[in-house]
């Protein structure tokens, strides 16, 4: 839904044509999530079908312009006012991978964690260079400020992942240490009772 609402947000600033919307969406988000023009026009026609935008003549160069309708403005306001839903999180490949790695034969889970940590920290180094470059030029307009927020979101998200990996590792170490200091487990309780029963019978 973010493309749909993203386009509505851009149209609220005045009528625009398709490829202009694409360019503006990408400069806001630093091309983090590139759009193709086809996606833009498909989205525009759905928005038009739903009465949220309307075709609004042409500019001097013959580009078909779209503008936001009152219903579109209401929809946009509702989007800004409604939190993004986190109650139904998308599948996370890394969480699934670690869950499967616990106790998997032949898998060194600490090596899995370190390989991911390496990759995540490396990505953070890349994002941080992007951010330093952006800060070095002092964000001058709203597109640059918006892009800075997006790149910082990437950094914070990667940081959360790196911290979670640290946590997983220390938890696994603690559990392994606890397991090592526990006395040798005896036979399961049922088995013990059965054995005891048998020996009593023998006696």
């Amino acid at each position: 839904m973010s493309i749909r609402h993203g386009l509505l947000a851009l149209l609220e600033r005045g009528p625009r044509y398709g490829s202009q919307l694409r360019t503006e969406f990408e400069s806001r988000t630093g091309s983090t999530w590139p759009l193709n023009v086809g996606q833009v026009y498909t989205t525009l026609s759905r928005l038009e079908r739903d009465g949220l935008v309307a075709q609004d003549g042409e500019d001097d160069q013959g580009h078909a312009l779209y503008s936001i309708s009152d219903a579109g403005r209401t929809e946009l306001r509702a989007w800004f006012e409604t939190p993004v839903d986190r109650t139904n999180p998308p599948r996370d490949e890394l969480a699934i991978k670690l869950a499967m790695a616990v106790g998997a034969p032949g898998v060194d889970i600490r090596a899995v964690i370190q390989a991911q940590r390496h990759h995540t920290v490396k990505a953070m180094q890349d994002y941080t260079r992007l951010k330093a470059q952006s800060l070095g030029q002092a964000p001058a307009n709203r597109d640059e400020v918006a892009w800075l927020l997006v790149v910082e979101q990437l950094i914070f998200q990667a940081e959360a992942e790196a911290r979670w990996l640290d946590h997983c590792e220390s938890r696994l170490i603690r559990l392994a240490e606890a397991a090592a200091t526990e006395p040798e487990p005896g036979p399961p309780p049922g088995a013990a009772a059965r054995t005891a029963g048998r020996s009593r019978t023998r006696r």
Partner: peptide, 15 residues
């Protein structure tokens, strides 16, 4: 540092 966000400013991160 134990903060990945600050470590990311480095050229190289050693674990």
């Amino acid at each position: 540092t134990h903060e990945p966000r600050y470590a990311a400013w480095a050229d190289r991160v050693v674990f």
